[in-house]
Every structure is written in C-alpha cells, then in structure tokens.
Nucleic acid binder design. Structure first.
Lengths: 341, 341
DNA sequence: CTCGCCTATGACAGCGCTGTCATTACTTGA
DNA sequence: TCAAGTAATGACAGCGCTGTCATAGGCGAG
C-alpha cells in the first residue's frame, strides 16, 4: 500500500450541483427538501445533476444550520433481549429509507444511565425520541417534557404519557395467563420472574391480582430475582421453587427463556407437562410453538410496537397528527399443550 | 441556581464558557479536546465553568468544522439474530463512555443493501467503520478502501482484509465439530443449514471437507435452505432429512436455533439423543448447556469480537496502532451429552 | 545578553447548509 | 385597468465549532 495522500477529493456540495444546473444553492436545497416549492422542469434538471455528481447532503451541516438533526434517538434497556431486538427490527424497518437516522442507546435497565443517555441524545437536538416505558427518573421525565421534539414511549400503556405511546398492559396480560391456568384447574400456580424491571413487576402484579382473586395466591410460590433472565436461570429457579413449594402444579414465567428452562428442568426431574405441571411463558417467542410439548404463552406484538411507534413519530415529523396518540396493541393468550389438562 | 432559563433558551456554546472564564473560545475547545495543550490551572477553571453552565458540545458543529464526525458506523446483517446482538453488546459496551456514537445499519444479508448503507454512512464522514465479513460487493469494497477512516471487518478471518479484522475460521470450527462426531463413531453425520450466508457456506465447506476426508460424505445428508433460521425450521428440516436419509445418525447444525429444533423434533419422533442421534449446534448459546440433554456446540466469542473490534478502532482513533491488525479469536468445541455415545 | 525554540494562547476564516427576507415575473378580480 | 396577490427564485448571514497561522512570553545555549 503506497502511502500517497489519498486524493481526498473535496466533497460534492450543494454549490457544485447548483453551479452545474445554473441556479443558486438554496434552490437546490429546496428542490431536495421541499420539491413543491420548485418548478417541475427545474426540479428534474436538479435531480439529474444530483445523480450525475453523486451528491449526498451533509447531515452535520444540515443539523447545524437548521438546529435540528435527522437523528431519532431510541433508548431500550437491553440489546440482547429478544423482546427488544424484535422491537428494534420494527423500528429499523420503518425508519429505513426515510430521511432519519437512528441512534440507539442501551440503558441496561438503569434509570440513571437512561437519564445520561437522554442528555447525550438531546445535545444532538434529535428529530424525535423513542423511549421504553414510563419509569424514567424525575429528571429524565423533565428532560423529555422539555425536549421540544416528538416522543413515543413504547412497551406499555398508561402512566401519564409524555407525548405519544404504544404498548400493552403487562398487568392485564399476565392476569389473563394466570386466569387461564386457574380455569384449567391448576390450584397452585407459581410465578417465576427474573430481572424484575418495571414491566416484570407489573406482570407479577397481574399474576398476584388474579391468584388472589381466585384465592390461590401464596408467597411461597413466588420466586423472583433481579438477575438477568436466561434459560439456565429458569431451570435453577424452578428447581428452587419445587424445593420450597412442592405443591406447585403450574408455573407462569415472566418470559419465554425462563419457561424453556422450566421445561428442561421439569423433564430432568421427570415431571410431566402438562399432566403434573402446567407451564406458561410470556412473549410467545417463535420457539414456544415448536417445543415438545408446545408451550402456552402470551403473545406480544413487539415488532408492531416498534413499527407503530416509528410511524407515529414520522407522522408528527411530517406535520401531521397520528391517528391516535395512545395505542394499546393488546396481547393474545396462545394456549398450547403445556397448559391443557 | 438563579439562572432562570428562558423558554427557548439559546444553547450554551463554547463562547459562553469562554466568556465566563475570560479566555477565547478556541482555548476552551482545546481544553476539552487536547487537555495537554492547556495549562493546568486554566484547564481546571474551564472544567468548572463547563460544569456550571452545563455545556455540551454540539456534535454537528464539530463534525462540520473538523470534517470528521464522531460516528462509528456498524453494519451487521441482522438485528434479531442472537449472534449479532451479542456482537453488538460487545461494541456498545466498549464504545460507551468514549466520545463516539454508534450508527447501526442492518444489511439483511444483502450485499446491495450493505453497499447502500455504506454510502449513507460515508456521507457522514464516520470516524470508523465496523462491517461484517469480507463478502462485500466490489463497489462496496472500493468504498471501504477509499473510506479514509479505520475499518474493522468482524466475524471472520482471511479474505484479504481492507484494514483490520477480528474473527475466526468458520471452516475450521465446523470441521472440528464434524471430526468430533466422526471420532465418536457416528458414521452418517448430516448437515442442516438455514440462511446460508457466506459464513454458513464456509461452515458447510468445513463439514464437507471433514466428512469427505473420513469417507462419510453424502449429498443426501445435506439439507440447506436460504430461509432465515429459527427453531421451527430446524424441526422441519430435520423431519425432512430423516425422510430422505433415514440412516442419519448425527446432525451438525449451522446454528443453535436449528439444533434446538432438531432436539424437539427428535423427541417427538422418539429418537434418543445421543443414543440414536448425535446432535451438535453452533455458537454455543447459553441455552445449550441447560437443554435436556445438554447439547454440544461450537463456542464462538461473539461479544469479544465486538469488543476487540471496537478497541482496535479506538486505538487507531487515538493515533496508536492496535497490537495486532488481524486477530483470530478461534473457537472452542464444547462437548456435552448430546454427542457422547 | 541575544538568538532560536518551545509553550500557551488568540484571531480568523470557513466547514455546508438553511432561515429569513427580498426580488422578480406572473396572475387575478372587480 | 391596476392594486394585490402568488409562485419561483435569489442574497445574505449565520449555525457552533475547529484548522491554520500568528503572537507573546520564557528559557537554555552560545
């Protein structure tokens, strides 16, 4: 590799395109951003020149001049969690091809970190913001309220939205799953939860309300941890649960990873599902349908959350109002063999 | 805290900080970027003023003036694939807290899309670039070569690196797994692969070379599809494989999702693992250790790939040279019950 | 002492774009 | 017919920062 200074050609600017067409730079700028303000033939000639010169606008210059970047900030609590990678996919799919870039922040289930990310994002004057849930720190909440850009809170409903919101009720969803177990005749349904972030807490509350209502709630059958969720943890927690509450005849898991761990551990212990143990997961990841036996779960619409959230943002950024500011995507209880007695 | 903030407060600029301290803006800029160029006491006073005023640099202005953004572009072929979310985690963990922002692009296993993303990224004059593999389109390859910023290719070794590289040999890893199956006495090991992107192809080649060498290769025992991988697909492919090649006594799966599907399907069909069927996955996702029976897999160092790649980039961006430009992270065959006869 | 050199700081221009206001050439209604 | 629009384009001044070069002292060698 010869180290001759690369011909670091000056980048093609608006002015270059303008000179080529014989108009002023500002007209080219308008042809690109507000085509309706430029006459048809001129617009075509400009488009041609843009193509020939391979002109690409400089987002930094644009951001500086307009005091508004094309960045949409997205803050999620985890990248590896399947739930959020599905949400992200929805967001990327929707925002791709628009003028907006995504800036992803990982809050690691930590409100202080979320607040810090928010500050960083806001320093870029983002076009919009997508944040997870409504359990921001008070300071973060204030930052959101004065952000001066459209904001979508995803993953939940309720909680006095800052601006727009799309999600579902974790309380209701977990309640529905619990009532299903009870309706199947399980009299000692347990709850296994990991991570126990705010949404997990609300799922637990849904379980608690439903079991209490049916008179089958017992502290002994609740096993939660702040540790991050994974399959092995599900297996370990289930073993612990059995030791502590051997009467357990069903388990509602906070998510499908845990449920898969329970499935494996139950098999190791020779417990039949659903005969000896009912098992229900949460989120309905693809694998649940294919497991042996297939595992019941609460389907959540993760990709749609990302998609709709992004669409709401885009509507606002286009100066329209989204059809609804608050969207409840609901959930769907998917009953499979693992909970059929 | 008497400074009442007007509703549309002008953003705090370098000049504001400079005025407060009684120096010029450029000195403040230097105190922030090249502290060694500013005298100790002045540096301290500036730091104080920055704190008091809550000054945050404007990345757009910085990018415009320096002709270099603080964006590190990352292009991966999938967001949902566990493999890449692990890699991403490594990248985010490492780059977090540095001056750099990550811009994520999803190429969807599509070279044309990758090329398009590259163009978008390059228009922002990124500080650095992390791309997946070395199977770029010729045009993309040229873009990379003339990008004028440090570049790391991750996930693989070999292939005439553009600049820096960190990964492992998919060929070798799959070969090692295959030889293990053969060493265990399996005489009819099959290969199941989905997606079949370049890395999957190389894994298949590793399997093919090892089986051929041992004289146990058979076209009939190779079942691949371009469809995206998932657990159900693994189950379906395995069922199809059995119908076509009932003599199959072991399966090497292109990844662990497929392997999990095989595990479930084998159970459904009453085939004992490892007695009747040996099973080996690829990547060693956390769940493999916990499955029943535990499933052998080839461990890959996904998070480390992201981390090391980022560190190499950072070294370059700090004007140093990374210890090695080409890093082979290797792999580790994890033998568990599913392949023990 | 001087000269040259190094360190710490400043002045200035301009990165590529857009907001704002101005200008020109047409319409149009009564 | 003409005042009063409307549509299409342009001039200009920055946005907030950094690259570059200039400047002011301080210091050791000759």
């Amino acid at each position: 590799m010869t180290d001759d200074v690369p011909p670091h050609s000056r980048r093609t600017t608006l002015a270059d395109v303008a000179a080529r067409v014989g108009v002023s730079a500002i007209t080219v700028s308008r042809a690109l951003r507000r085509p309706d303000m430029v006459s048809e033939p001129l617009r075509k000639r400009i488009a041609e020149a843009v193509g020939e010169l391979g002109y690409v606008p400089d987002p930094a210059a644009r951001a500086l001049a307009s005091r508004r970047s094309n960045v949409i900030g997205v803050i999620i609590p985890s990248i590896t969690n399947n739930v959020f990678s599905d949400v992200l996919t929805g967001i990327y799919d929707t925002l791709e091809g628009t003028a907006y870039d995504i800036q992803l922040g990982n809050s690691r289930y930590n409100a202080a970190k979320e607040e810090a990310l928010l500050r960083v994002f806001l320093s870029q004057r983002p076009a919009g913001l997508i944040v997870t849930g409504f359990d921001q720190s008070p300071a973060a909440r204030r930052l959101l309220e004065t952000a001066g850009c459209p904001i979508v809170q995803i993953m939940e409903t309720g909680g006095n939205p800052v601006d727009m919101m799309v999600g579902f009720s974790h309380f209701d969803a977990a309640g529905a799953a619990t009532r299903h177990l009870i309706a199947q005749g399980y009299r000692a349904p347990a709850f296994i939860g990991a991570r126990m972030d705010p949404r997990s807490q609300r799922r637990f509350q849904g379980y608690r309300a439903a079991t209490t209502e049916a008179g089958v709630f017992s502290e002994a059958r609740v096993l939660t941890t702040a540790d991050p969720s994974n399959v092995s943890l599900g297996a370990r927690l289930f073993a612990e649960l059995l030791a502590r509450a051997p009467e357990t005849d069903a388990v509602l898991c906070n998510n499908d990873d845990l449920a898969l761990g329970v499935l494996f551990e139950a098999r190791r212990q020779g417990m039949e599902i659903p005969g000896r143990l009912g098992l229900c997961g949460f989120n309905d990841l693809e694998m649940m349908a294919c497991a042996e036996p297939p595992v019941s779960s609460v389907r959540t619409f993760r990709q749609q959350m990302g998609q709709q959230g992004s669409e709401m943002l885009l509507a606002r950024l286009n100066g329209q109002e989204p059809e609804q500011r608050l969207v409840n995507l609901g959930y769907e209880l998917i009953v499979r063999q693992s909970t059929l007695r």
